[in-house]
């Protein structure tokens, strides 16, 4: 690019404009990426190398001990298993609900249809914090479990147990809305033809609609994966006291916070290594499925 500037410095204002454009894009993109690169390289530096550098870690040799130790340890895999259980659950149930509701709200005629739809949609306007305390109290005082008597007193109910991490948030109004939009673009002929051939509703949902909803479902899978992988507040409040079931965002945050001082200095390289490792799967997901991410974010935008 430098050669281009020397070639025609003044004759073509368009070219200068493009060079400025690229300079702007490259420099700002590097600023955006700087913290992530810093964490990547910082996590691959030894303590001594790390503290020798100022603006950016410049290790004399790549130091993999933090990565190896973390992969060899039990913590990471425990968090990954716990998180993947939630990821699978929070994909399968909301997806099923959205597929069924999309069918109900576009293919079936019944009294009160629009009313029920608006009723479900209204939850999109409520900020998550409103649910937090009542749900916590409901879990803590749930009768007959976790040492509670039939009046919900005495124990801790569902708090710090799996049900508290799996029960809330299963009906996602946004996905119902999204799925309904997609159903509206599918012609009814397929279903009618299948019904003439004697197919029942379950067969129609599984064999006809499920494949046609594929791209919307991929968007759902991606966004639920990211949301659950990064979910921090729910696990913190509902299960913060049980290390065994901690998902990755909570586990990693606490691990980083608890990283001890090494050789008289905080062990920053280890913190960076852990942060990088738990972020990589999401980055890989984005790079592979970038098209669907963009499609999904656009779907968030303006279809209403």
């Amino acid at each position: 690019m430098a050669t281009i500037t020397q070639d025609k410095p003044t004759r073509s204002p368009i070219r200068i404009g493009r060079i400025l454009l690229y300079l702007f894009l490259i420099s700002t993109s590097l600023v955006m990426f700087y913290p992530l690169l810093f964490a990547l390289v910082g996590g691959l530096s030894s303590q001594a190398d790390y503290f020798r550098s100022t603006w950016f870690p410049t290790p004399s040799a790549l130091y993999f001990d933090n990565w190896i130790n973390f992969f060899a340890g039990r913590d990471l895999w425990q968090w990954v298993i716990n998180t993947m259980i939630r990821v699978a659950w929070y994909i399968i149930v909301p997806a099923t609900v959205a597929i069924l509701c999309g069918y109900v709200f576009t293919r079936l005629k019944f009294r009160g249809r629009d009313l029920v739809f608006m009723f479900l949609l209204s939850s999109m306007m409520v900020p998550g914090i409103v649910y937090l305390l009542p749900t916590f109290i409901g879990f803590a005082r749930f009768p007959g479990v976790g040492g509670n008597d039939i009046f919900g007193q005495g124990g801790s109910g569902f708090i710090n147990t799996w049900p508290a991490l799996l029960l809330p948030g299963l009906v996602n109004a946004f996905y119902i809305f999204l799925m309904r939009q997609v159903y509206q673009t599918i012609p009814r002929d397929y279903e009618e033809a299948a019904r003439v051939d004697g197919a029942n509703t379950i067969q129609i949902l599984v064999r006809i609609y499920f494949p046609l909803l594929r791209s919307a479902l991929i968007v759902l899978v991606i966004f639920q994966f990211v949301a659950v992988w990064n979910d921090y507040l729910n696990p913190l409040v509902f299960a913060g006291g049980n290390k065994e079931i901690a998902p990755i965002a909570l586990g990693a945050q606490r691990f980083i916070k608890g990283t001890a001082i090494q050789l008289g200095r905080p062990d920053y390289p280890r913190m960076f290594a852990v942060a990088t490792i738990v972020t990589l799967p999401i980055m890989a997901l984005f790079i592979v499925l970038q098209r669907y991410f963009v499609q999904g974010v656009q779907g968030f935008g303006l279809k209403g």
Binding site: S29, L36, A249, V278, F286, Q290
Partner: peptide, 26 residues
Amino acid sequence: LGIYRTMWYVPTLTSAAVTAQVANVF
């Protein structure tokens, strides 16, 4: 385009808890 878009969008996908905890290092 894809590269710039990735560099701008990826921070959005990181865990707020983990990145905030690490931000303390800065």
